[in-house]
Structures are given as structure tokens and as C-alpha cells.
């Protein structure tokens, strides 16, 4: 059966800065958690004006007691405007959209996120808290703020491992993929789930292929509608030996590493 998609106006419960680079936006929703699949997204209309025009898609970061939240970073004018909204303001959203992660056996699974790509992996972490989640961040202050946020969001911290580019005794120094390599040396995994910059995900894929580990990647694209109508957000995939375009919003946003044509 098709899951319900909500389209409604929502009141902001909170919109605040997390560390130096991230923001958390919480809004009141009628969405029932049963309809949310980890890896799905919501398409937000930031303001009622026409510039920027298009909605902006955000991974569902968390859902708790009628409150949905997204974690974001200021990337351009849309997210810049979003960051200026205050508690009590209204936004409208469409969602949950997309399919989320493909069904998998939890057994030997690992998640790897680069930067704000982590936003797409926490809800999965909350539901299946036995999966180690490796996150690569640039600054120590972001890592500390993130740990506080996880505590507050009731997302277990003990399986979350953070790598920070800035040299500091509290955290592993390096990138998310450096941290991944150390995990793979210690334990054998069957599946890696990942979201982050395209180059980082490509590195994760190359590492996984060498070790014969299956992969699922949560992709990001500029989207026109978020629902599969405008056909603007394509990804090139290999399908039955042929090259095809798929839509990140409707067919994804999660794709297996083998089907993606990496560039």
C-alpha cells in the first residue's frame, strides 16, 4: 500500500543553531511516525514569496511526539532564509517523500556520513540503534554540539563515532572515510549506508567494492517538485546492463552503489 503523503502548514517549534555550522528546525506535524521510513525527506516551502521560488528538500532528522525536525546547513539563499525563521512562524511542507533506505538485515551494517549528510542517517540510527554511525566533521565545536543534540533527541550516542579534521584529543582525527577504514580493519561488515558529498560517497563505494561490501547511498539533488512530476532530479544508473535515468525524489533518494554511475 502507498504511504500517506502530508501537505500542510506547520508551526515552528524551534529553529536554532547547532555548533558553528548547523541548524535544527522543529515543526509540529500531523504525520504519524508509522508513515516515516528512515531516509525519506520533506519538501519545505520556506516563505510565501516567489524568490527563492522552489521548495527545498530536507532529510527527516527526527520525529518525536508530533514534532518533526530537520538538520540543515546554510548552503544558499533558501537555507539562509530558513535560518531566520522563528518559533511560531509557519512553513508548509510536503512529505514524507521518497522511499528511504532499502530493506536490509541489520546484522553487520555500518553507516557513514560526511558533514550535513549525517542529517539523513540519524532517524535510521534512532530506530535501529545497534548500527554504528561514523560521522566526519570539520570542527571540534560542531562535534561537541552534535553530541549534545543527540542526547536531547534521544538518539543513542554510544554507537556514534565522530571524526574531526581539526586535531583534538577528544575525537579521531581525519575524515569519515579514514574512520571507516579503521572500522573495516577490525570487523567484517556486509552493508554500508552512506550520505555526504558526492566525492566522499564515491570513496566509500570504492572502499566497499574492494572488500565486497554492499552499499546504499542517500543522494541529494536540486529538485523542482520532490514528487516525481517535473523529472528534474535525475541520477544515471545501470539497469539490466543498460544506462538509464532515474529520479532521485521518486525512485530514490537511496540507490545501491552498484546501480549508480559514478562520475
Amino acid at each position: 500500500m502507498e504511504r500517506k503523503i502530508f501537505f500542510e502548514k506547520a508551526r515552528l517549534k524551534e529553529n536554532r543553531k547547532i555548533g558553528h555550522n548547523f541548524y535544527l528546525l522543529k515543526f509540529i506535524t500531523s504525520v504519524n511516525p508509522v508513515v516515516i521510513s528512515p531516509g525519506q525527506f520533506v519538501d519545505l516551502r520556506i516563505r510565501d514569496n516567489h524568490d527563492p521560488l522552489l521548495r527545498r528538500p530536507f532529510s527527516i532528522f527526527n520525529y518525536e511526539k508530533g514534532i518533526m525536525s530537520v538538520l540543515y546547513k546554510i548552503q544558499g539563499r533558501g537555507t539562509g532564509m530558513l535560518s531566520s525563521l522563528k518559533k511560531g512562524d509557519m512553513i508548509d511542507y510536503i512529505g514524507p517523500l521518497g522511499n528511504g533506505f532499502h530493506p536490509f538485515k541489520i546484522g553487520k551494517t555500518l553507516s557513514v556520513a560526511g558533514g550535513i549528510g549525517m542529517a539523513g542517517l540519524f532517524y535510521l540510527q534512532k530506530i535501529f540503534n545497534s548500527i554504528p554511525l561514523l560521522i566526519g566533521l570539520n570542527e571540534k565545536s560542531d562535534a561537541l554540539a552534535l553530541l549534545d543534540l543527540l542526547k536531547e533527541s534521544r538518539i543513542q550516542q554510544n554507537r556514534v563515532h565522530i571524526a574531526v579534521m581539526e586535531k583534538t584529543p577528544e575525537f579521531f582525527t581525519g575524515t569519515a572515510t579514514d574512520l571507516l577504514q579503521t572500522f573495516l580493519k577490525r570487523t567484517k561488515y556486509d552493508l554500508i549506508l552512506s550520505c555526504g558529498p558526492e566525492a566522499m560517497m564515491h570513496s566509500v563505494y570504492k572502499i566497499a567494492v574492494k572488500k565486497n561490501i554492499a552499499t546504499q547511498f542517500l543522494l541529494e539533488r536540486i529538485m523542482g517538485c520532490g514528487m516525481g512530476v517535473c523529472q528534474g532530479c535525475t541520477v544515471k544508473v545501470k539497469e539490466k546492463g543498460r544506462l538509464n535515468n532515474k529520479l532521485v525524489c521518486k525512485d530514490g533518494p537511496v540507490f545501491s552503489g552498484e546501480e549508480i554511475v559514478w562520475t
Binding site: 521560488l53 536540486i222 523542482g224 517535473c230 535525475t234 538509464n244
Partner: peptide, 20 residues
């Protein structure tokens, strides 16, 4: 029809360019 390769949409002030 498979449609166009590469970038297919872009936002402009109060508008959108498409080449689906």
C-alpha cells in the same frame, strides 16, 4: 524518450529554467 542528460532544472528569480 529518455530525456536530456546533465543538469535539467535551475532556479532563477521567481522562475525556473528546465531542459527535461
Amino acid at each position: 524518450r529518455k530525456g536530456n542528460e546533465g543538469l535539467r532544472i535551475a532556479e532563477t528569480p521567481a522562475g525556473m529554467i528546465n531542459r527535461i
